[in-house]
């Protein structure tokens, strides 16, 4: 019996290649590989052959079957792949439509600035201390070297509650509590943030409530140059790595010598602009060497220990950093105002 294997094979392969759908392939598969199909037909012819021929014929038929099976499988995969691609093309979406809004609120800009400053000092080994807003005259004034009747009390108009109590006018009050609590656990390295109150009328640059942060270091051999170096770090972190600072003489009752600290203008870089009023410098901080009376009142030996202290207005830093022109914005809490403060920088 002579069968033209090659012709059959080519014919079937051409049929498979010509099929385009899963249905056509399924039908073809039955025709070729099914119980009554082409291959099965060959097998039924085998019984008339001699054993010799049988082996050769069987071998050929089996080879053919295996090859066809493989071709069918790959063709099926090809069709499935094509179908999937067609489906995906159909499922195309408009990627320019807006996404579903995820919930996201903002921190208040004063919190952002406060946390940034807390973090800088925490990284330098400072501990953050809070204290009461309803404060004793003792810590707000007496311990800060501002005794009853002292003209310096005129500098800050105070909200009094009674003879002993008031709303703290500066975070110096927290420092005084810190000094008392830690006077026998030196060295002291703290930053003290908090709300403070002054009897001011609210306008674009004044607020009866605002936020201050003060810092205090007390140890042996602390110099004013350490104050300068520490605040230089702060200024560079808040306003950019190329900022310079300068000290100017000033007066605070609880420090001696006292200084105002100016930072080169972050807008013009020191050339002079309307933000720095043409001077190239912006006044940001106050500070000085802790007054020996303050140390002594807290029970610290001022002949052995020295310290520096500084204070900064959080609103002022935020206004300069973000270009905010009216301090009342911070307390009006208009959502349009709060919206842009999405992150730390």
């Amino acid at each position: 019996m002579s069968i033209k294997w090659d012709e059959i094979k080519q014919d079937v392969l051409a049929q498979i290649a010509g099929a385009n759908t899963k249905e056509e392939i399924d039908k073809l598969k039955v025709d070729i590989l099914g119980k009554k199909g082409l291959i099965a037909g060959f097998m039924s012819q085998m019984k008339t052959l001699s054993p010799e021929e049988k082996r050769e014929f069987g071998q050929k038929a089996n080879e053919l079957k295996k090859e066809f099976e493989a071709v069918f499988a790959s063709k099926m995969e090809e069709i499935a792949q094509k179908a999937m691609e067609e489906q995906m093309a159909k499922d195309a979406i408009d990627i320019t439509l807006p996404g579903v809004k995820a919930s996201k609120g903002t921190l208040h800009p004063l919190t952002i600035v406060q946390q940034e400053i807390e973090d800088i000092f925490e990284s330098m080994g400072y501990t953050v201390w809070y204290g009461p807003e309803v404060e004793l005259d003792l810590y707000n004034f007496e311990r800060a070297n501002i005794p009853q009747g002292h003209p310096a009390r005129d500098m800050q108009d105070t909200f009094y509650i009674d003879v002993e109590r008031l709303l703290r006018t500066h975070t110096t009050a927290i420092q005084m509590r810190t000094l008392e609590a830690l006077h026998d656990k030196l060295p002291i390295k703290v930053v003290c943030p908090g709300k403070v109150y002054r009897r001011d009328d609210d306008d674009a640059t004044h607020s009866h409530q605002f936020v201050q942060i003060e810092g205090l270091v007390v140890a042996e051999n602390i110099h004013m140059s350490d104050l300068k170096g520490s605040l230089e770090l702060l200024a560079r972190h808040m306003f950019g790595p190329t900022r310079e600072i300068r000290l100017r003489p000033s007066y605070f009752q609880f420090t001696e010598p006292s200084v105002e600290i100016d930072v080169t203008c972050h807008i013009c870089g020191g050339k002079g602009c309307n933000v720095c009023k043409g001077t190239g410098w912006i006044e940001i901080l106050g500070g000085g060497m802790v007054h020996p009376n303050v140390l002594e009142m807290a029970g610290i030996d001022s002949t052995k220990y020295t310290g520096f202290a500084f204070g900064v207005g959080v609103e002022r830093v935020a206004m300069l950093k973000y270009g905010i022109d009216d301090i009342r914005n911070f307390y009006a809490n208009d959502i349009q105002f709060l919206k842009p403060f999405t992150r730390f920088e």
Binding site: E118, F121, E122, S123, M124, G125, Y126, T127, V128, W129, Y130, P187, K189, V217, A219, E220, N221, I222, H223, M224, S225, D226, K228, G229, S230, E232, L233, R246, L247, R248, P249, P257, V259
Partner: peptide
């Protein structure tokens, strides 16, 4: 220092034992 000028003061950092920073 007021009359001599504060630019005589250089920038240094406190030389003291390392302390651990902490939030409140």
């Amino acid at each position: 220092i007021r009359i001599q000028g504060f630019d005589h003061i250089v920038s240094t950092l406190p030389l003291m034992p390392t302390t651990q920073g902490n939030l409140a």
